[in-house]
Structure formats: C-alpha cells, structure tokens
C-alpha cells in the first residue's frame, strides 16, 4: 500500500537521497541498473537514470563510461569533509544540541531494552 503513490509522486529530493545513499554504501561504481536493484521497490529504470544525471549535473556524482552505459560514484569525500567541519564549528557552540532537530535523541540503557522489546528483537547483550 505504501508504494502505490508511485515514484513520480515521491519527493524528488527523497529519491536523490536514497540513490546517493546506495552509491555511498557501494564498494565500487554502480550502473543505473545496479542502483535500481539495490533500492528495490518499483522504480523505473528511466527514473533512476534521470536521478543519476541530475545528481551528476549537481556535481555530487562522478561517472565513467563502462561499456555502453555510465557507472556512477559519489564525488570524493567532499560531503564528509563538510560534515566534519560542521561538527567542529557547532561543537564550539554551547547550545549545539538544542538547535539541531535530531531524528532520535540518545537512549538510556533501559530505553534501549524497551525499544528492542517493542521491535520484537532478542533483547540485551545477554545472548551475544
């Protein structure tokens, strides 16, 4: 049910983020077909190609010709550098934690246990 809206109605940025994540997680350069396979779901091949070209145009991706198609890799660690620089600058601010709207805040030990129980996962470190 959740995917009935189809790729066209998904926010474009969301798809770009997903594609970029797949490429960053990958060991080597990926072709559009491989990207689509890793994302899974109902994405059309052409949609993936469109997103990849858009990301390439933005300078986020590099690409090389491999056979008939292009393969894509994320541009060298530029975003990672930016993130580390950001962390350093914000660490200096006393209110750093307060201004970042974090998806999830830190968990206490009991919170972690509680969440694992809610997820139906085997709990705790006892069995590991």
């Amino acid at each position: 049910m959740r995917d009935e809206a189809g790729p066209t109605r998904r926010a474009a940025g969301e798809l770009e983020a997903a594609v970029l994540a797949v490429l960053q997680a990958a060991e080597s350069a990926l072709s559009p077909g491989e990207v689509r396979d890793q994302i899974g779901g109902d994405l059309a091949y052409t949609t993936v190609v469109t997103i990849l070209s858009r990301l390439y145009a933005k300078g986020v991706l590099e690409r090389h010709k491999a056979g008939r198609a292009y393969v894509y890799t994320p541009v060298a660690d530029e975003p990672g550098l930016a993130a580390r620089r950001m962390a350093r600058v914000l660490d200096a601010e006393p209110d750093r934690e307060a201004v970042l709207a974090r998806f999830v805040s830190g968990l206490s030990g009991t919170d972690e246990e509680l969440l694992r129980r809610m997820l139906g996962e085997p709990s705790g470190q006892a069995d590991s």
């Binding site: 970029l20 933005k58 975003p79």
Partner: peptide, 10 residues
Amino acid sequence: PGTGKVVITD
C-alpha cells in the same frame, strides 16, 4: 554541498 534540501554525508 549541493543545493538540495537533503544532504547525505559520508
């Protein structure tokens, strides 16, 4: 980096 709203950092 980039102009998009979402930035994925490595």
